[in-house]
Design a protein around this nucleic acid. Structure first.
Lengths: 227, 227
DNA sequence: GGTTCGTTTATTGTATACAGTGCGCGTACC
DNA sequence: GGTACGCGCACTGTATACAATAAACGAACC
């Protein structure tokens, strides 16, 4: 033991060192702008213009664009120019089929690893969902619920893969809401019992059961799809 | 039609516009160094030092490190310092379980989309494998084979997910070879017929058949694993 | 002697400056 | 009128310079 400074109240847990960098903020803000539709498909993302709008230099913007490319929100052409990616309905089909595979895998993994904390969190989230009457809010809670399941899997490559499609799912959701899509009101009544059943099967510890429950959950989502 | 320049020999297909940038080269070279073990686990990746070694400035290096983080080869600590990620055996277990899910999905997708070109390429690759007597070379050809299958799926999110684990697979392979691992010579005799069977089932157009063939292929790989 | 405080140093984060490049537009020439 | 050439503009790619911060070391004080 080299340094023996005073032991510092052990309960006190400070903010988790959020690596606050302009580049990180830029990622968040540009991502949000794309999801909200503030930046439209095919819009040219000129580094100078973005930098000016964000009040920073081009460097953080460049780094942000690289990350957003990985999330599938931004595209670079052969000359290095970036633009907001234009999603076709087929693109979303692909994203959701990817989601299907990832979540089924997550269910399988989670079945063996679910902790008491996970269960408590998930139950609390279901209660929150039950209290909601707004479809937009519900869909956000739903994504958060699935986020939490992925987190519960404690499986790094899975989490990384999930992050490559998460934003695209949000793009679709936001777009669907703006378009007053066909998401039915009945969804509210379906979501909560669906999640309860899913959680029950995840808790069973039975991988097959968990997988199948997730397949069912994904199938109900499937109906909300564009085409 | 705005400009009507002369029609330029249609067969002539130039190099695919490889976006040659120092940043891109840096990604390639640092990745290679990590895979080959030239940069060892936990090694600090100082931007200045890397820049000096590569003969460029820090900017391309920074951008390269961001990309390599997404490939799982590089880690950043809370203060922004990067280092070569240290893989545990559990990490590799996770990577290969992820690979399993992705490839099974790929098989399912490919079953419906395989073209004549795909088949020709894959067959040619199998022949190449059959001609090889070197285990290291064979494992590279094997990865290339699976790469080609992913490509044949023509499924963007799948390809992106695959790229998040591909380098890590290569790390494991290179490490295993350096350690004179338990990869058996019999692998050579097993690989080629295995791939032939797999290709046959991918061509069948039957999703279930294709999935199961891939599960089998993955299971044989499984034996080469560390633990 | 050990602890604490300043100073130095190493390294990242950000800004700015500069170089290179393709594209559009105008112009001249046929 | 159309085609080819050349110039300028709008961007990106890269380098360099500067600011900020935390670790490392050392010195002074108890």
């Amino acid at each position: 033991m080299n340094h023996k400074t005073k032991p510092l109240p052990s309960k006190l847990h400070l903010s988790p060192l959020a690596r606050r960098s302009l580049a990180g903020d830029a990622v968040t803000r540009i991502r949000r702008a794309i999801i909200e539709g503030e930046l439209a498909a095919e819009d040219a993302l000129t580094e100078d213009q973005l930098a000016a709008k964000l009040g920073v230099s081009r460097v953080p913007v460049r780094e942000a664009l690289i990350e957003l490319e990985q999330e599938g929100l931004v595209e670079f052409d052969a000359r290095g120019r970036s633009r907001v990616r234009a999603f076709t309905e087929d693109d979303f089909e692909e994203v959701f089929s990817m989601r299907y595979s990832l979540e089924v895998m997550a269910a399988r993994v989670v079945a063996k690893r679910l902790t008491q904390d996970d269960v408590q969190d998930l139950e609390a989230m279901i209660c929150q969902q039950a209290a909601t009457k707004d479809l937009t809010e519900l869909s956000l809670l739903d994504v958060a619920f699935h986020d939490r399941i992925i987190q519960a899997a404690r499986h790094r490559p899975l989490a990384v893969c999930w992050e490559t499609i998460r934003s695209q799912i949000e793009v679709w959701l936001a777009r669907a809401h703006r378009a007053q899509s066909k998401m039915k009101l009945s969804s509210i009544e379906l979501t909560v019992p669906g999640h309860r059943r899913l959680l029950a099967d995840l808790r069973s510890g039975n991988e097959r059961k968990a997988e199948n429950a997730m397949r069912l959950e994904m199938a109900t989502w499937r109906e909300w799809l564009p085409a």
